[in-house]
């Protein structure tokens, strides 16, 4: 039986791969000619070319001209049609009576977005790391069907941000499931997404819900790398679980926790998709975050200002570069420590 199934699988695989093999033969003759010119080592350039071309055109080139965009004004799209204004766009972003009071700024929306994002980052990252850590600790215990439970927490990670946003809009709406529970418990239903503070809380909760499984997995991998004999020794000494956690688990998990912390920071600064679908930045501007500000100024608003959008995106990019460098530094240190072990 198994042989028959294998036979079918092999034949099916061969049928799917037939055009692939044909493709290889068609390309082989011209590429051999190329190879005769470049030598076998020179073919490396050929193999690198497609990827680097795409990188160059769609990542590096935009990155460089982004700086030029941020120094030009007007509504024109192409760089050649735009007028040079120097640092005016940055000046506009930073012209404020007081940075703590967005109303006193020329670009009040930018500062509203900055402060909203900052509050979001602090609260969401703290909550994300805490929930991910607890989940990882729970999943690291001796469980029956551990892979099932791991999958449970991982499920929302795969959902698209639009789906996540719509699922929660449906649950948080006035006649939704959450209000049903509040109603059954004897409370008064709340219009979750219309009330400012609740809407802001919802963006944090929903983004934690959507991504916590991913970070829990990273932490779980870290927990499983901690040598078991440490725990056995602690058990023989009759150490209490909390003490084991503070003295063994936490110090040894610190590198992974740091990675998760920085990763969540990087993602939280750029938060857009699910919040945009969930609240659209509202009510008012209470859930307007930086990426949405850039999107609206650059593409959506009636008074489009690409230069201003790029200046704001460069400021955000600077923050992200610093965070990413920290992350890479940590990753390298962890790697070296791993080698020493």
């Amino acid at each position: 039986m198994g042989d028959v199934r294998n036979g079918i699988a092999t034949r099916a695989g061969a049928m799917i791969l037939a055009p692939v093999g044909w493709l290889a033969n068609v390309f082989d003759a011209p590429l051999r000619m190329l190879q005769r010119r470049t030598g076998s080592n020179g073919m490396a350039v050929f193999f690198l070319a497609p990827n680097m071309l795409v990188f160059g055109i769609f990542v590096l080139f935009p990155l460089v001209i982004n700086i030029l965009y941020s120094m030009t004004g007007g509504g024109a799209l192409f760089l050649g049609d735009r007028t040079f204004v120097g640092a005016d766009q940055y000046g506009r972003l930073f012209s404020c009576g007081s940075y703590l009071d967005p109303k006193s700024c020329t670009e009040d929306l930018f500062w509203i977005a900055v402060w909203n994002t900052l509050a979001f980052v602090v609260l969401q990252v703290a909550m994300m790391v805490a929930v991910a850590l607890v989940t990882a600790l729970v999943l690291n215990r001796e469980l029956r069907a551990r892979s099932f439970w791991r999958a449970v927490f991982f499920f929302p990670v795969l959902l698209s941000p639009v789906v996540v946003g719509l699922i929660w809009r449906w649950i948080l709406q006035r006649q939704g499931l959450l209000n049903l529970m509040v109603f059954e418990a004897g409370g008064t239903p709340v219009n979750w997404l219309v009330e400012r503070n609740w809407a802001f809380t919802a963006t944090i909760m929903v983004s934690v819900w959507a991504h916590v499984g991913f970070y829990a997995l990273i932490l779980l991998a870290g927990l499983q790398a901690i040598p078991k004999d440490l725990y056995e020794a602690a058990e023989m000494d009759g150490t209490r679980p909390l003490r084991v956690f503070w003295r063994i688990t936490l110090p040894l998990l610190a590198p992974n926790l740091l990675v998760v912390l920085v990763l969540t920071l990087i993602r939280a600064v750029q938060i857009f998709d699910e919040v945009y679908v969930l609240t659209g930045g509202g009510p008012g501007t209470s859930t307007l975050f930086l990426t949405q500000y850039i999107y609206e100024v650059g593409f959506a608003s009636m008074l489009r200002n690409p230069g201003l959008a790029s200046a704001a995106s460069i400021l955000m990019g600077a923050v992200l570069v610093v965070l990413t460098l920290i992350q890479l530094g940590i990753a390298r240190r962890n790697e070296q420590r791993g080698k020493m072990r």
Binding site: L48, M52, F55, I57, F58, V59, L60, F61, P62, L63, I65, N66, Y69, L77, F78, L79, I266, Q270, F272, T291, I294, Y295, G298, F299, P306, A309, S310, S313, I314, M316, G317, L320, V321, T324, L325, L328
Partner: peptide
Amino acid sequence: VMMLIVATLMVPLSVILVPLYSVIS
């Protein structure tokens, strides 16, 4: 080349929206 690829890890889409849009256009 490796360094260049690492560097692009630092450039999320939201940072290059405007220029990338002009390239595509």
